[in-house]
Amino acid sequence: MTKAIELIVSLDPEVMQIAGRSLALAASSCAIATLIAIPLGSVIHFNSFRGKRLLVNIIQTLYSVPTVVVGLFVFVFISRAGPLGNLGLLFTPAAIIIGQVLLVLPIMMGLTISALRGVDVTLTDTAISLGANRFQTAALVIKEARFAMLGAVIMGFGRAISEVGLSLMVGGNIRGFTRTLTTAISLETSKGELELSIALGIILLFIALVVSIVLNRLQQR
C-alpha cells in the first residue's frame, strides 16, 4: 500500500501518461456519444411511431450489455478480415473510442429519453399554448431536461472510463499507445504487480470521483 501511494505521489510519468490517456479516451467517447445520444434520444422521444415502446425496451436492455460483447462486435467489424478491415483501426485508440461510444450510447440515449419524459407534460402544453411549433417545443423541453441529461453524461463517462474488456479486446493494451488504467490494472494484476495495480485503481477512482463531483455540482445548482 505504501508503495502504491509512493507511485501516485511521485507522479511516475508512465502512470500519469496512462491516466491521461484513460481520461482523454473516455472523454472523447463520452463527447461523441453525447452528440449522438441527445439528438437521437430526442427524436425517439418527440415522435410517436410503431414499435417505439419495443425500441425503448431494447435500448434499456442494452444498458447491461457486457463490454466484451461490444468488444467482440467491434473486433469482428474492424479486424483485417472484417468489413472495415482496410481502415487499419484494430489495436488503435480509435478502436477503443468506437467501442466505448457503442457501449455508452444505449445508456445515454435511454437516460436522455427518461430525462425528457421526466419533464412535466403541462410544460409541453404550456409551450404549445404560447404558440411554440414542434421544434420550439422540443427545444424548450430539452432545455428543461438539461440537468437530468447531465446525469446521462455522468453515467456514460463512468461506464466508459471503467470498462476493461472492450479496451483489452480492440485496443490490445499496447504500451504507450492503447494502454489505459483498466487494462494496465488487468495486466499488472496478472503479472503479480499488486502495488502498481492498486495505485492505478486509486487513480481511476480519483478521476471518476473528480468528474462526478464536478458534474454533480453543476446538476444540483
Binding site: 403541462t122 399554448s129 404560447l130
Partner: peptide, 30 residues
C-alpha cells in the same frame, strides 16, 4: 390561430428560466 390566442393552464407552470425569459418566450417564438 393558436398564436392569436393564449391559454393559462390551471396548474401554474413556469419554465426553469428567469421571469424575464418566461414572459419573453411567446414573443420569441413568434
Amino acid at each position: 390561430t393558436r398564436r392569436r390566442m393564449a391559454f393559462v393552464l390551471q396548474k401554474p407552470v413556469v419554465f426553469n428560466a428567469s421571469v424575464y425569459d418566461n414572459i419573453a418566450y411567446g414573443l420569441k417564438w413568434r
